[in-house]
């Protein structure tokens, strides 16, 4: 049966398999960074912070504004490499501060007052969704519906060839930087005193208090870490999708990142990495086969549902520090 609204082209995937894979891993690394924010907060508060997508896009706006102010525009700048790296690192730091600050602000405004009053989980959920909308519409009122002008950071250069496909400098930068950051977060959670506090609050908040853990401080730190990672993700997102910054941009990416967190096992740091990469790959393969990126989300959700039918807690299980690969 043939129809024009959907068609399957497996040949397209076979032809471009490795290129699709490398690009999927790049996108997946970005999803994974954002997914970590969902997962860490879920770990300590058992709460899906729906406003995390806006935490992310706030950082992306910061990147665009900062780089535009430095003269970056639609075509790649001609800067000495050292200057370029400096600019990008600065943009990353600014995005991390903006996203981290937004995350902490969301915590203070939307969740802490409810926590102090011992509100029900439903109240937290509504507050989370409400906060997400409030931020989205603030961005909308402020910047309108159209995307910010593109800022191109550099023209991707081929670095090496694998299986006949090029891996370029952009893919390599994003993938390596994101994975290094995630390994750092994993090590912080596993090895530092802050990490022990986070895991303790995640597993048993009252007992954590009895051990001398200041739960409120751990919660703020967790939101801040999630925000920093979202800020870093924002830099890489603008790098990969230079004209993707508008008020709904966070929502679109956030859904994928949230899916990644659930797929890997929400509350599980390594699960977020695995889930992110999988969502990146699945989405890209799906879009290639179906010949249209509109289908990406559909494919991702079908896979999510199938996985959750077999493993309801996600691939690696859903407890912070509990599942160890």
């Amino acid at each position: 049966m043939s129809s024009d609204w959907i068609s399957f082209d497996f040949g397209a995937l076979i032809d471009s398999f490795w290129a699709t894979t490398f690009d999927g891993l790049t996108l997946g690394a970005i999803y994974a960074l954002v997914a970590l924010g969902y997962t860490l907060v879920y770990g300590v508060l058992n709460l899906i912070n729906f406003a995390h997508s806006e935490v992310f896009i706030a950082g992306a706006f910061a990147v665009v504004f900062f780089l535009s102010a430095l003269g970056f525009g639609p075509s790649a700048p001609t800067l000495p490499i050292g200057m370029l790296i400096l600019d990008l690192v600065l943009a990353g730091i600014i995005a991390m501060v903006v996203s981290g600050g937004t995350a902490v602000l969301v915590e203070r405004i939307a969740y802490k007052p409810l926590r102090n009053r011992g509100a029900s989980r439903l109240a937290f959920l509504i507050s989370a969704i409400g906060m997400s909308f409030v931020l989205q519409y603030i961005f909308y009122e402020w910047r309108g519906a159209t995307a910010e002008p593109a800022v191109t950071m550099f023209r991707p250069k081929p670095i090496f060839e694998v299986f006949g496909s090029i891996i370029d400098s952009q893919q390599l930068t994003i993938f390596i930087a994101a994975v290094v950051m995630m390994v750092c977060v994993d090590q912080i959670v596993q090895r530092t005193k802050l990490g022990r506090g986070i895991r303790a609050v995640a597993q048993d908040p009252d007992t954590a208090t009895l051990m001398g853990v200041n739960k409120e401080r751990i919660i703020v730190a967790t939101f801040a870490i999630g925000g920093f990672l979202a800020g870093a993700a924002a830099l890489f997102y603008v790098m990969r999708v230079p004209s993707g910054v508008f008020y709904m941009g966070g929502f679109i990416l956030g859904i994928k990142a949230f899916t990644a967190a659930v797929l890997g096992g929400i509350g599980n740091v390594r699960g977020a990495l695995l889930g992110g990469l999988l969502v990146g790959l699945i989405g890209n393969y799906g879009a290639t086969i179906l010949g249209d990126s509109q289908w990406t989300d559909v494919v991702i959700f079908i896979v999510l549902i199938l996985v959750l039918m077999i493993r309801p807690n996600g691939i690696l299980g859903s407890n912070l520090g509990e599942a160890r690969v």
Partner: peptide, 10 residues
Amino acid sequence: PEGRGIFPGM
């Protein structure tokens, strides 16, 4: 505490 409060994943 009552119920011991062991951190199960540690």
